[in-house]
Simulated scan of single mutants.
Amino acid sequence: MTKTEPASRVTRPGDIFALVTATDPWSPAAVAGTAIASRWDADLTGCFIDPTLRKLAGGEAGDEPTVLGLLLEPRPDFADERAAFESFAHQSGVRNADWIVARAGVAATLRWLGARHDLAVLERDMVQASGLLDILGEAILGCRVPCLILPPQWRGEIRFERIVIGCNGSLEAIRAIHAALPFLKVAQQVVLVDGDLRDGDEGRPRFDPFVYLLRHGITPRPGYVRASSAMAGEILLKEVGNLGADLLVMGAYGRSRMRERVFGGATRRVLEEATVPVLMQH
């Protein structure tokens, strides 16, 4: 259960952007982003990426608009889309909403928008399954913003009443927990799955996720796991099912091998199989 905190200590995502894949009807990222922005009184940016540009891997998209993006004709209904999105957001209780159309791939768009936003909302199936890791996964690892990833065909509500946290003592996990504080503070149940609590590893200060959450008024039910990274993903997904959780929080893990990004087993498993929204941070 959570404890009530003074208003001055309650954090919130002040600027949110959603990578929208459809406007009629609005795609899940638009709906979820609007719900979060309304609940936490945040500003919202809706961003549409042309389906052709969504096919580009991170290395192809680059930091600048792609040649393909420059050749694409501007969408003639841009003004109508902007007005429709602003109306949709305002009717849902969002005070400030903006609409933009990206001219670059997913990775570059996430990096640029992530520099001035606190949270990204995106749909896992905005890319084909064959490009899940090379395109969407690379984009998540390459940006520096927490990403709320919605499962395919998601039509649920943003409640975040039961949350599972996966923590292995890494920087990625710590960042993910910190980013999730606004959601954890309103949850009814929080389960902390601690996979590898390290005490001063390599001279680093100790981070105890249980104590950290307690200091923020959050009392999680702890669970302790000793397993390989490949098994960690399976364990987290099983815990999500046991709790009936509506959010999973974890770090996004990857390392570079000769310019090729290699994903950790848990990141890969969760990204491929999660059936609830996942908050990831690299």
Rank of each mutant, 00 (worst) to 15 (best):
A42D: 08
E272A: 11
L113V: 04
L141C: 07
L141W: 09
A108W: 00
V94N: 06
Y212N: 01
M280D: 03
F207G: 03
L44D: 05
L197F: 07
F160R: 04
D118P: 04
R175F: 11
A79G: 05
V101M: 10
V164S: 02
V240E: 04
E202A: 13
T219C: 04
V225S: 11
A84W: 08
A97S: 09
D118L: 00
D194W: 00
V101Y: 03
L237D: 03
I163R: 01
L181M: 13
G62S: 06
A232K: 06
N96G: 02
P74S: 00
A232G: 02
S87M: 12
T52M: 10
V145A: 01
A180V: 06
E273V: 05
L141V: 12
R39Q: 13
P151Y: 08
R9S: 13
E138G: 15
G251P: 11
K238Y: 01
L150V: 10
R206M: 13
E172F: 01
D246S: 06
G131E: 12
D98K: 10
Y253R: 15
A61S: 15
A176F: 01
H117E: 04
T275P: 00
A107P: 03
E161T: 12
L271G: 11
A97E: 06
A179V: 00
G251W: 11
L133C: 02
D118T: 05
D24K: 15
N168V: 02
L197T: 10
W154P: 09
A104T: 15
A22S: 15
T11H: 10
T11G: 08
L110P: 01
E81Y: 14
G46L: 05
L248W: 09
L133V: 08
T23D: 09
M258A: 15
W112C: 07
G58Q: 03
G114I: 10
V278F: 01
A252I: 04
A187I: 07
A37H: 08
R198S: 07
K3R: 14
L148N: 04
F78H: 15
I149G: 02
L44N: 07
T21P: 07
T4I: 13
R82E: 15
T11P: 03
L70R: 08
G195H: 09
C167F: 15
T52K: 07
G244E: 05
L19H: 06
L68R: 01
H282R: 14
G69W: 05
D77C: 07
R204L: 12
L122Y: 05
H178M: 07
F85P: 02
E272M: 13
H117C: 12
V276F: 07
G33T: 04
G195E: 01
R162C: 02
E161C: 05
R261M: 13
L122N: 02
G33R: 04
T34H: 01
V211S: 12
A79M: 10
P220E: 00
R39L: 11
D208F: 04
E272G: 02
W112S: 14
R144K: 14
L271W: 09
K3M: 13
A232T: 14
E202N: 13
M280F: 15
K185W: 01
